[in-house]
């Protein structure tokens, strides 16, 4: 396996008024292509912040973030947006679908950033929706769907442009056990069958079990896997 992500000496701090809040001082990590990593840790430990840096929506205060041999922390805003469109699919805790668009139109959004024709876009949307077993709900509005269904639409949206990387921030945080398991199985399928590299933040040890490995984040550092409770 080749390294997809390489974080070198990443530091991140926020300035709030006169106070400087340091979240990471010296974070180093490598994620191989095809990996499925669960990130756990107490609230406020910086899990979301880390995921945002991986996804190119946030930048480290210092240090380097390498993705497939390209340094992304120094890209301009416009180039980062382009990079995200090509490489990352985001899955959020609260689905974040556009309420005025039906399932198919929501899934189509990332394809609006490509050169695909309307016909091709439609085909790809169908494929993605079929993969999450929601082809029959294409015309449904988000408000007409359950949480689990909305999350599956969100997954379809994340994978429709075929990115290498899926970043999930507590994707099952708002779902019951059975629905959560379905979602996690889908993620597992995407990892195993479609070779998507997945980084998933979760509070739920049962969810973390679906991943290939789990990293525990605490006080700005990764704690040895075996050592964490």
């Amino acid at each position: 396996m080749t390294a997809l992500f390489d974080l070198k000496k990443v530091a991140k701090s926020f300035v709030k008024g006169k106070e400087k809040i340091s979240i990471f001082d010296d974070l180093n990590m490598t994620i191989e292509e095809g990996d499925f990593v669960a990130i756990m840790g107490p609230s406020g430990s910086g899990k979301t912040t880390l995921l945002n840096m991986l996804g190119g929506v946030d930048q480290p205060t210092s240090g380097e973030v390498w993705f497939a041999g390209e340094r992304i922390d120094s890209l301009s805003e416009g180039n980062l947006a382009k990079w995200r469109a090509n490489n990352v699919g985001f899955i959020f805790q609260f689905y974040n679908l556009m309420p005025m668009l039906n399932a198919a139109r929501n899934v189509e959004l990332p394809l609006l950033l490509t050169k695909l024709s309307g016909k091709q876009r439609k085909k790809n949307v169908e494929t993605a929706l079929t993969l999450v077993e929601l082809a029959d709900r294409a015309k449904h509005m988000p408000s007409e769907m359950s949480g689990g269904q909305q999350q599956r639409v969100a997954i379809a949206r994340a994978i429709v442009s075929d990115p290498k990387l899926l970043l999930c921030d507590e994707p099952t945080g708002d779902l019951d056990r059975a629905t959560a398991d379905e979602i996690l199985k889908t993620l597992q399928l995407l990892n195993e069958k479609f070779n998507k590299t997945i980084v998933m933040v979760t509070h739920d040890p049962a969810a973390a079990k679906y991943a290939k490995r789990t990293l525990h984040l605490d006080k700005g550092e990764f704690v040895e896997e075996g050592m964490a409770a």
Partner: peptide
């Protein structure tokens, strides 16, 4: 606000 942030995270540029 939230929806615009989502669009941006998908790769829609600010301009």
């Amino acid at each position: 606000t939230g929806e615009i942030a989502v669009l941006k995270s998908l790769g829609f540029t600010s301009p």
